[in-house]
Write a protein that binds this DNA or RNA. Structure first.
Lengths: 238, 238
DNA sequence: GAGTGGTCTAGACCACCAC
DNA sequence: TGGTGGTCTAGACCACTCA
């Protein structure tokens, strides 16, 4: 019983593996789209969907008249975009993170949150505040605001593990994408008391506006990083 | 004599205008792909290319079985991605920026730059260092390293205006995309002496690895921001 | 001129949603 | 059950690059 997979995704993953294994070294070109279509017994448009994914994720660059040039992969091995949760992030950096739930409550939202989530003051919203510890220091403060309407139950245990895993796995919610905004701010009193700032006087704030599959905005997350524990990588295409 | 335009781009732009004009208000759905195909006298795949662009740029969210839902546009009016130059950025914020060229020289690159651009110590590289002044304060330090091989001439006047405009307009270089990396760092001595830090003790650093159309990496840019003059917005799709 | 990727077409079948 | 978007096909013509 094999898992059904899109053809273009299968091809994409195979090509990613091939590039990572060095079968297609940096600066070389992939086989042409027609050759790949023959190779994979599929149509050219399907190959093109796979190649566009490779291009969007920084594996290749397509050059008209020449081919698909393989890009240097050794520069970054960092999650490139997507909804990076703390757990994924720490995992990818090979650190053992610890999460402490500092607050877990349900109430009517402050105005700032009302505005972010397009709510009125009668809505009910979960407030989750979590402290992330890496290497013995509290370095990240995550504040989540989640619509009660969508998530009737939320426990300390769930928050200590991964809220996303719970929402997607247990509740079957489909998280679709996020608008992300990165700024740098002065630390608040709360930041100072909960984080080990060690003299740093700036906080890097990542605000996430999280949408469900059906286009409803349902969560607002503020992730407050000690500046030395922050890094963001992005591909900007033109 | 009309400018030749891709069909799917034309449709994309028309739909963007329609959304901005409120013809398709937030939360409503666009006409279905088949209806749009009829409307624009084109095939459904072409409509889908236009809609995918809208989706990638945060105008709509596609929901299977329902339609293309129009998203709230009023939250951000900030450049969303792309190779944002200082000039564009300042323009979009309605400020009158001033640029001072602090250094313009050509030499063999330091090791840090060699590594970023995959060069050896015999290559020649332009070093451009520019100070950006907004509201009377020096708030951004831009350091560019550009392959001499690609850009034989570079003057103070060009650097005071826009290097990108020169590269693309005069030299006909095709800048294709950039890998962007954002971190926060302690200010260097140079930062302290050139910028008006006003007590801020962190610098937000945006590193850009700029590629040409033919997939050659040709420029490395380091943009060092006073933290209160930094903001970055991104859409992360899943 | 041969080969590359970019665009476009007119069909087909499928998964999902709402009525 | 009918309409939606998601995938896939087999063809076509075009713009560009390189020998």
């Amino acid at each position: 019983m094999s898992v059904k997979q899109n053809k273009f995704l299968t091809i994409y993953h195979e090509l990613v593996e091939a590039i990572k294994n060095g079968e297609y070294p940096a600066q070389s070109t992939l086989p042409s789209e027609n050759e790949l279509a023959d190779l994979y017994q599929t149509s050219r448009e399907t190959i093109r969907k796979a190649l566009n994914l490779l291009s969007q994720n920084g594996f290749i660059q397509k050059v008209r008249g020449k081919g698909s040039v393989v890009l240097d992969q050794n520069k970054f091995d960092f999650p490139v975009s997507g909804l990076v949760s703390f757990k994924e992030l720490a995992d990818s950096m090979g650190e053992k993170p610890k999460t402490t739930v500092h607050e877990l409550s349900m109430s009517h939202p402050k105005e700032m949150v009302q505005q972010a989530l397009n709510l009125d003051e009668n809505s009910l919203v979960w407030h989750v505040s979590r402290i992330r510890n890496m290497g013995g220091s509290n370095v990240i403060l995550d504040k989540d605001y989640i619509l009660y309407e969508q998530v009737p139950k939320l426990t300390k245990e769930i928050c200590e593990d991964s809220i996303y895993a719970y929402l997607e796995g247990e509740l079957g919610l489909n998280i679709s994408f996020a608008k992300k905004e990165i700024t740098a701010e002065d630390p608040t009193e709360e930041d100072r008391s909960l984080l080990d700032l060690e003299g740093f006087s700036t906080i890097v704030v990542i605000k996430n506006y999280v949408y469900l599959n059906d286009a409803t905005l349902f969560q607002f997350t503020e992730s407050r990083h000690r500046p030395d524990k922050f890094r963001f990588v992005d591909f900007a295409r033109r």
